[in-house]
Nucleic acid binder design. Structure first.
Lengths: 133, 133
DNA sequence: CGGTATCCCGGCCGATACTG
DNA sequence: CAGTATCGGCCGGGATACCG
């Protein structure tokens, strides 16, 4: 996957995130945004109801969870299943595409978690090298 | 400056990003933040100088790129190589850890780009279903 | 339970100017 | 070239109240 793809100066790929006004960038930001990634990760374990999801994604407000879910549903990554019962019951689950995205995301999350000790060491080194002397 | 909170017998919480006060979350946000991901992706192709990087990551301001690079360097994902020449020359490159993170990130970016047509279709469906009628 | 509506503050981020 | 300093707008996002 080391393909550089630079086949010319004007080889502008249609969905290249690196270019400013590309649609991919918006979707990528929904996925990797503050709550998007954690929401997708939580749903990977199975479908969840609104408040269960809210409890799982620790720290998210109602507003932001709602907003995040709408964006992900609109992008076709999450499916919303509402049952017209009383009291209402709504389940959220990943679509096929959402599942694939979540897999990559969880791989990234797992990598970061497993290497946090290295990160912490790097931070100490950096801070020591940059403290006012 | 950075409180790790690792002291005390009850601070045994792992590096689980889903929990609110976890250090992993901060690093994950540096990586997946608006410019962090694109910066790591750009550097995966090879080391770049500041302004070349700025050109590659289309739309980033000097200030945000500088800030992003500092955060990534502090977390040990990017290495800054400064040569004391005149005019100055500074190269940024990924560390071993940064390279591993970037690989996962590029996998995710590639997936999103390759599936954007599906996302666009989903968006149309969603918008049609939610328009006021 | 599963949300929406509203208010409002902090800080993200862009623009500009300046430095070595 | 490679940044830092400063200002200011705007909007992300938390708190609260309310609705079906």
């Amino acid at each position: 996957m080391e393909e550089t793809g630079e086949s010319g100066p004007d080889a502008a790929l249609p969905f290249d995130v690196f270019s400013k006004q590309c649609v991919s960038r918006g979707t990528l930001e929904h996925i990797t945004g503050r709550w998007g990634g954690l929401t997708l990760g939580a749903l990977y374990e199975g479908s969840l109801r609104f408040n269960a999801l809210r409890r799982r994604v620790d720290g998210v407000s109602e507003k932001m969870l709602s907003q995040t879910l709408h964006a992900l549903e609109r992008d076709g990554l999450v499916h919303r299943e509402a049952q017209p019962t009383n009291p209402p019951r709504v389940d959220y689950e990943l679509t096929a595409l959402g599942r694939q995205v979540a897999e990559r995301l969880l791989g990234l999350i797992g990598l970061v978690e497993s290497r946090m000790s290295e990160v912490l060491v790097a931070r100490e080194r950096y801070d020591r090298a940059h403290e006012t002397h």
